[in-house]
């Protein structure tokens, strides 16, 4: 994908979301009857800021904690520690009563479009549910008008309002999911691999729809994906996760032009280039081994077991996110020497 269409967000002064040292640990029953519970470190100390109108891509392989991070931000999974500040106010552990009004600004779109829609409800009821929940003062007719308007906006025929999810294709179901997320005009949508389950041709439509909506409503998006081409197309900044840790956090252009972390380099070199000449001659970094278990992550730098540049220091000290340029932060002890 060469067309770079992500628009530049307006320079904003303060972030709408800032995440500080966010950790999500699950306890897993130990092996054996009396073995103590073990800790699964799904997300282990993540920091980032998100500005209005910005898209942050979260990439990483399966099981690196991308989805858990998205859900923890929305408080769908209670974080174990850390801070999620929404418009400057920490919402970790906020009681239901305080969380409720914030829910209208925070929405989510899921990977499996059909599974995210209740098969027993008409799509009109599905899209209207957030409205009914948050604006009970609206009348039936007003709700219907708004639902139809939103359906038209996301490219669904409004007369389909009484149909059921199983009567739609995957791409249409994802549009329904987007309509449900957009109906309250939220400020942030977490997109949890929204296009991975779709055909390539449909993927482009959905991604473009998300970008249009973002421009129109000044939305912030957290775009979770493992497809680096799509991330490059839609995101302004990209965060690379590995085993629940941030490896690199940088501007899209800097990260694709000059990845600093060995893991990011490996990921980016694995993206195929649609030119056989270049593709054949490009330098590839092939990672060996598997993702270590998040039950017992390696000491020091979590990536060291698969890192081609690992040295003694990596096993003892865990690297912090270093700012290497205005737009790029890397968590690697040797980012200077290896790039």
């Amino acid at each position: 994908m060469t067309a770079i269409t992500a628009h530049k967000p307006k320079k904003a002064t303060s972030p709408i979301l800032s995440v500080r040292d966010l950790k999500v640990h699950f306890s897993v029953p130990g092996k054996g009857l009396f073995a103590p519970d073990r800790k699964l470190r799904a997300v282990d100390g993540v920091n980032f800021d998100l500005y209005p109108g910005e898209t942050l891509g979260v990439v990483g392989e399966s099981g690196c904690g991308k989805s858990t991070l998205g859900r923890a931000i929305l408080q769908l999974i209670p974080p174990s520690s850390g801070q999620v500040a929404w418009l400057g106010k920490d919402i970790v552990g906020a009681p239901h009563r305080e969380m409720q009004p914030l829910r209208r600004d925070l929405q989510i779109i899921f990977q499996d479009p059909l599974a995210s829609l209740n098969p027993r409800m008409t799509i009109g009821e599905i899209i209207a549910e957030p409205l009914v929940t948050h604006k009970p003062e609206l009348g039936k007719d007003e709700i219907k008008v708004r639902v139809k308007r939103m359906m038209a906006r996301v490219g669904l025929l409004p007369q389909m309002i009484n149909r059921y999810p199983h009567e739609f294709s995957g791409g249409q179901c994802q549009r329904i999911g987007i309509a449900r997320a957009m109906i309250l005009e939220p400020k942030l949508i977490v997109c949890d691999e929204p296009v991975s389950a779709l055909d390539v041709s449909i993927q482009a439509q959905i991604v473009n729809l998300l970008q249009e909506l973002q421009r129109e409503f000044d939305l912030s998006l957290i775009f979770i994906s493992h497809d680096l081409s799509i991330v490059r197309h839609i995101c302004h900044r990209i965060m690379v996760l590995y085993l629940g840790n941030v490896m690199e956090l940088a501007d899209r252009d800097s990260i694709y032009a000059a990845p600093r972390h060995p893991y990011t380099k490996a990921l980016i070199s694995a993206v195929p280039i649609p030119d056989p000449e270049i593709e054949r001659n490009k330098e590839r970094i092939v990672l060996t081994g598997d993702l270590p278990s998040p039950l017992s992550p390696p000491s020091g730098c979590v990536f060291r077991t698969r890192c081609p540049f690992a040295q003694d220091k990596c096993a003892t000290a865990s690297p912090t996110l270093d700012r290497v340029s205005e737009t790029q932060e890397v968590a690697c002890h040797f980012h200077d020497s290896i790039s």
Binding site: R104, F110, P130, T133, G177
Partner: peptide
């Protein structure tokens, strides 16, 4: 654990309504 239940959660639908609107019909 299905996603439409999670979506209802994310929207802030109450547990009571999730049980009677989403779970029981299914």
């Amino acid at each position: 654990r299905r996603e439409f239940i999670e979506a209802a959660h994310a929207t802030g639908v109450s547990n009571f309504k999730i049980i009677f609107r989403h779970i029981i019909p299914n």
